[in-house]
Amino acid sequence: MTPPDDVRNPTAPSRARTWWEIGIVLAITVGQSAVYSLLSFVRSIIRALEEDRRISDQQTQLNPSRDSAAIWDLVYQLLDIFFSLALVALVIYLLWEPGKSAFAKIGLDFRRFGGDVGRAVLLGLVIGVPGLGLYVLGRALGLTVAVVASPLDAAWYTVPLLVLAALRAGLTEEVIFLGYLFDRLRRVGWSWWAIILATAGLRAAYHAYQGVGAIVGNFVMGVVFGWCYRRWGRVMPLVITHTLIDIVAFIGYPLAVALFPGVFAPVIPSPSPTATPTPTATP
Score class of each variant (00 low, 15 high):
residue 117 V to E: 06
residue 117 V to P: 01
residue 117 V to D: 05
residue 118 G to R: 11
residue 120 A to H: 07
residue 121 V to G: 13
residue 121 V to S: 14
residue 122 L to S: 09
residue 123 L to H: 05
residue 123 L to A: 08
residue 123 L to Y: 02
residue 124 G to N: 06
residue 124 G to H: 04
residue 125 L to V: 11
residue 125 L to A: 02
residue 126 V to P: 08
residue 126 V to A: 13
residue 127 I to K: 14
residue 127 I to L: 15
residue 131 G to M: 10
residue 131 G to E: 06
residue 132 L to S: 14
residue 132 L to R: 15
residue 133 G to S: 10
residue 135 Y to R: 10
residue 135 Y to P: 05
residue 135 Y to N: 08
residue 136 V to A: 14
residue 136 V to F: 10
residue 137 L to V: 13
residue 138 G to S: 13
residue 138 G to I: 05
residue 139 R to G: 02
residue 139 R to C: 03
residue 140 A to I: 13
residue 140 A to F: 14
residue 141 L to W: 13
residue 141 L to N: 07
residue 141 L to K: 08
residue 141 L to P: 02
residue 143 L to D: 08
residue 144 T to P: 05
residue 145 V to G: 02
residue 146 A to K: 00
residue 146 A to H: 02
residue 147 V to W: 13
residue 148 V to T: 11
residue 149 A to V: 12
residue 149 A to T: 13
residue 150 S to H: 15
residue 151 P to W: 14
residue 152 L to F: 14
residue 152 L to N: 15
residue 152 L to V: 09
residue 157 Y to S: 01
residue 161 L to C: 12
residue 163 V to S: 11
residue 164 L to Q: 09
residue 165 A to R: 00
residue 165 A to W: 02
residue 166 A to M: 13
residue 167 L to V: 15
residue 169 A to F: 15
residue 169 A to L: 11
residue 170 G to E: 09
residue 172 T to A: 14
residue 172 T to G: 15
residue 172 T to H: 12
residue 173 E to G: 08
residue 173 E to K: 06
residue 175 V to I: 08
residue 175 V to A: 04
residue 175 V to E: 04
residue 176 I to L: 12
residue 177 F to I: 00
residue 178 L to H: 07
residue 178 L to A: 10
residue 179 G to K: 02
residue 179 G to R: 01
residue 181 L to I: 05
residue 181 L to H: 09
residue 182 F to W: 07
residue 185 L to E: 02
residue 185 L to W: 11
residue 186 R to F: 07
residue 186 R to P: 00
residue 186 R to Y: 05
residue 186 R to T: 06
residue 186 R to S: 00
residue 187 R to I: 09
residue 188 V to N: 10
residue 189 G to N: 00
residue 191 S to T: 14
residue 191 S to R: 03
residue 191 S to K: 03
residue 193 W to K: 12
residue 193 W to A: 14
residue 194 A to R: 10
residue 194 A to M: 09
residue 195 I to F: 01
residue 196 I to S: 00
residue 198 A to Y: 06
residue 198 A to W: 07
residue 198 A to P: 12
residue 199 T to Y: 12
residue 199 T to Q: 13
residue 199 T to L: 12
residue 200 A to P: 00
residue 201 G to V: 03
residue 202 L to S: 04
residue 203 R to W: 12
residue 204 A to E: 06
residue 205 A to Q: 12
residue 206 Y to Q: 02
residue 209 Y to A: 11
residue 209 Y to E: 09
residue 209 Y to H: 13
residue 210 Q to A: 15
residue 210 Q to V: 15
residue 211 G to E: 00
residue 213 G to N: 07
residue 213 G to R: 04
residue 214 A to V: 06
residue 215 I to N: 05
residue 215 I to D: 08
residue 216 V to Q: 06
residue 216 V to M: 06
residue 216 V to F: 01
residue 218 N to D: 04
residue 218 N to T: 08
residue 218 N to F: 04
residue 219 F to H: 01
residue 221 M to Q: 10
residue 222 G to F: 02
residue 223 V to F: 10
residue 223 V to N: 04
residue 224 V to S: 03
residue 226 G to Y: 01
residue 227 W to R: 06
residue 227 W to G: 04
residue 227 W to E: 09
residue 228 C to E: 10
residue 229 Y to R: 05
residue 229 Y to N: 07
